[in-house]
Design a protein around this nucleic acid. Structure first.
Length: 218
DNA sequence: CACCAGGCAAGTA
DNA sequence: TACTTGCATGGT
């Protein structure tokens, strides 16, 4: 299963030295991270920025305000991020659930990692990646985010997992977490660097041969 | 013009 | 269990 030629910590260092710090997650508050986590589902961050800008213009980076705003109006404001009807519903649903159980986003931290994770995964519209993104970047729990870039990268390294979607996600996540120090900053930066790598070199096949990281990884 | 982006849920066989 | 489809805008 684990390719012993791959030293994940060593590869992190190579990536970091090549690309530098990525500064994820760009946001002014944990709530803004949560909002961005929903809005960026299968959507470029550039489009998410436009939507978040609209929300900021209307003082809507606010838990109560977002719970009270009309869903159709919210959808109109987040339109640039795509799937706006769906995302407006998911956002209100998630924030309502958080407010129902806690005073604020930060209050969720009194839960253990697994408690918080299970709570999030029980909410419609929150899958594994969105849950882990919120846990890591908004709440600062030490969990590793797996996304399509990460899976693509593992596949290129010839590391394959079997079973259903849930098992494959957790096996990939475990691979990183068992082979890295339990360091929140490292987890944040590593995931961002893998996304950066994917955007730079893995998007189109011909570019793969130009990827300096992939050559060093092997 | 086609294709993709920092997914997820529901439906089908 | 393993595909397929709907959701939708904006950049390349």
């Amino acid at each position: 299963m684990i390719n012993k030629r791959i030293d994940l910590l060593e590869n992190y260092k190579i990536l970091y030295n090549f690309f530098g710090p990525q500064g994820w997650w760009p946001a002014d508050s944990p709530l803004e991270v949560v909002i961005g986590a929903i809005l960026t589902q299968n959507t470029s961050w550039q489009n998410v920025e436009k939507a978040i800008f609209n929300l900021k213009q209307n003082n809507l980076i606010n838990l109560i305000a977002l719970i009270e705003i009309d869903q159709v109006e919210l959808a109109r404001l987040i339109k640039p991020s795509g799937y706006y009807n769906l995302k407006a519903k998911r956002l209100k649903n998630l924030l309502l659930e958080i407010h129902k159980n806690f005073h604020s986003i930060e209050e969720m931290k009194k839960l253990s990692l697994n408690e918080a994770r299970n709570l999030l995964l029980g909410i419609k519209g929150i899958g594994y990646e969105t849950a882990d993104s919120i846990l890591l970047y908004a709440l600062e729990y030490p969990t590793f985010v797996i996304d399509t870039y990460t899976l693509r990268w593992l596949e290129r390294l010839n590391i394959k997992f079997f079973g259903n979607k849930k098992n494959r996600y957790h096996q990939s996540q475990t691979l990183f977490m068992k082979n890295l120090p339990n360091d929140i900053k490292l987890f944040k930066e590593y995931h961002a660097l893998i996304v950066k790598l994917g955007k730079e070199f893995c998007k189109k096949r011909p570019k793969c041969s130009e990827c300096p990281f992939f050559i060093k990884a092997l």
